[in-house]
Amino acid sequence: MAIKRRDFLKLTGLTLVGTAASAAVGDLLTRGEVKAQEYATPPEALKGKRWAMVIDVKKCKEGQKKGCGKKCIEVCHYLHNVPSIPDKKKEIKWIWEDEFEHAFPEQTDEYLEEIFKDVPFMLLCNQCDNPPCVRVCPTKATFKREDGIVMMDFHRCIGCRFCMAACPYGSRSFNWFDPRKYLKKVNPEYPTRTKGVVEKCLFCYERLAQGKLPACVEACPEKALIFGDLADENSEVSKILKERVALRRKAELGTGPAVFYLID
């Protein structure tokens, strides 16, 4: 851990020196804005222009029947130090299961309800194309990356919860208490949060940078979660969406969700 931290500090130092040097000239032109390119992604990183996820709900149901134990939730919440808080009202969740009528309340009718009666819908942040949460955040603590991921800076968030009012999907959780008390095991590779900040699924940006798929996608034994780049015609997600019927939650709001639910 100690070495890692030193390496990290060195890296930060180098980046700072680099930025300072380029800033001397660049500042005049860019007025101090940091250009995204200046952050060099490691060579092994997965690169995409529009990351998206496709969820095959039927496969998910099968997996659960076979006893997968909802590995996706378990692994995600462990890896990202998401606390398990018993009080439903104050809980924090990045990915969770709900029923069709809650995931798609405006599409529900008795027939669909019957069809999807025992079908699990895994919900998570939709990494919207046009994210209202980003629009309202007064500090840019939540922002959209060039690859479409809607990011959170836990160290900048002031906890105003405007983003929670703006998100039409209930994807965001707030740390009503100190979350560390509710962690059974801490994953030292990922930061824990403090009380008073908002958090949500970040599409495993940290794993993408290491060339790995999101944790939930990797964890699912049934391969019910498929991850890929929508901007790439030949990616698995693009191909599937061309062939099969998928729904997006509340697409009529113009948010442009990047999580699709295969329902055929």
Binding site: V136, P138, I158, F162
Partner: peptide, 23 residues
């Protein structure tokens, strides 16, 4: 009193965000 992180309240001025109505 509604803020989760009151110590950071000046982030609103440090990072002015004209797309936010709060600004």
């Amino acid at each position: 009193v509604d803020l989760g992180k009151i110590m950071r309240v000046f982030n609103v001025l440090r990072f002015p965000t004209p797309n936010s109505v709060m600004f």
